[in-house]
Design a protein around this nucleic acid. Structure first.
Length: 281
DNA sequence: ATGTCACCCCTCGGGTGA
C-alpha cells in the first residue's frame, strides 16, 4: 500500500498538478494539507473522476486538511483534534481506509516566536501527543501523515543557523515530536534514508529551491504492525510551474512482519548492505 | 531588512500568513 502526504498550498490553484501526480503515482491513500478552501469549494468531482474518494475538513482562506482514498470513500473517524472545543482551525482529520486508521494533520507554524502563535503551536502539539498516545495504545494499525511544521534535528535542514530563531527549529516543538516518536512510531522517511537529507519543503523566497535550501517538515509516522518497504520524496513536483512550496512524501507499507531474510555475509571490501531490505515498524 | 506567493477587503494596493 502506497501512502503519501502533500501540503498542496491551495488545492484549487494546484488541482491540475494534484490530478496529474495522482494519475502518475497512484497512491492508495493521500493526506493533503493547506487546502486554503472551504469544504464546499473542494474539487470533489475532479478527484472522483481521477478515482479518489475524499474526506475534507476545510475553512475559507486558511488551513484545511483532507484524506483521499483510491477507489473508495474514507470512513470518517474524527474531523478535529480532541482537547480544545474552542479550536476552530481546520487542521486535523482521521478516517479508516483499508482497515487502517489514517490521520492528516497540519500543525500550526508557530511564527513569530515567542508569542501567542507559538503558544498555540505548543498546545496543539501536546493535544496531538495525547491523541497519538491513545491511538498507539488502541493496538490498531495507524499511520499519521502531515505537515508537522517541525525540523526534527539539525540534520533535517540545509543550514540550521539561518533558521535558528524560527518556530520550526525551537527545542519545544522538537521535544514534542521526539516524545511522540518515543511512543513507538517509525518516521518512515528517516528510517529508509538514515544518512541522507531528504527535504520536503523549499521556501519560495531567496531561490531556495534552485539552491536546494530545503527543510524536512512533512512526516509519515507509521504505527505498529507494518513493514516499511520504501519511502521517498517526489522532488520533481516542487520544480514544476505553479508548484506548491512542499513536495509529496510517500511510503510503501505492508501490514505484517517483514519476510524472513537470509542475510548474505558481507562481501570483502566493506561494500554496503544490499538496498531495499524491509524495515520493521 | 527584503527576497515569494496568494489570499483578503474598509479593494487596484497594503495587510496578512506562511
Amino acid at each position: 500500500m502506497r501512502v503519501a502526504t502533500w501540503n498542496i498550498n491551495n488545492v484549487v490553484r494546484r488541482l491540475d498538478l494534484l490530478v496529474d501526480w495522482l494519475g502518475r503515482t497512484q497512491p492508495d491513500v493521500v493526506a493533503l494539507q493547506e487546502l486554503k478552501a472551504p469544504s464546499a469549494a473542494f474539487p470533489r468531482d475532479a478527484l472522483e473522476a481521477a478515482g479518489y474518494g475524499a474526506l475534507v475538513v476545510g475553512q475559507p482562506t486558511w488551513n484545511g486538511v483532507a484524506l483521499l482514498a483510491r477507489g473508495r470513500e474514507p470512513l470518517p473517524v474524527a474531523t478535529a483534534l480532541p482537547g480544545d472545543a474552542e479550536d476552530k482551525e481546520a487542521r486535523y482529520v482521521e478516517a479508516a481506509i483499508h482497515g487502517v486508521l489514517f490521520a492528516s494533520l497540519y500543525l500550526p507554524n508557530g511564527n513569530p516566536q515567542p508569542g501567542p502563535k507559538f503558544d498555540y503551536k505548543l498546545r496543539w502539539f501536546e493535544r496531538l501527543r495525547l491523541r497519538a498516545q491513545a491511538l498507539w495504545a488502541s493496538g490498531q494499525p495507524v499511520i499519521l501523515l502531515g505537515d508537522w511544521n517541525v525540523v526534527p534535528t539539525d540534520e533535517d535542514i540545509y543550514k540550521p543557523d539561518t533558521w535558528r530563531d524560527d518556530a520550526l527549529l525551537q527545542p519545544g516543538p522538537r521535544e514534542a515530536f521526539a516524545k511522540i516518536l518515543a511512543q513507538g512510531w517509525t518516521d518512515a522517511l528517516r528510517s529508509v534514508h538514515p544518512s541522507e537529507r531528504p527535504f520536503t519543503f523549499w521556501d519560495y523566497r531567496r531561490k531556495r529551491w534552485e539552491r536546494n535550501a530545503g527543510l524536512r517538515i512533512d512526516h509519515i509516522l507509521v504505527g505498529r504492525g507494518f513493514t516499511i518497504d520504501d519511502a521517498g520524496v517526489d522532488r520533481e513536483e516542487r520544480g514544476r510551474a505553479n508548484a506548491s512550496d512542499h513536495a509529496p512524501v510517500w511510503a510503501e507499507v505492508r501490514q505484517g512482519r517483514p519476510p524472513r531474510v537470509t542475510r548474505r555475509r558481507k562481501p570483502p571490501g566493506g561494500a554496503p548492505d544490499a538496498p531495499g531490505l524491509p524495515r520493521r515498524a
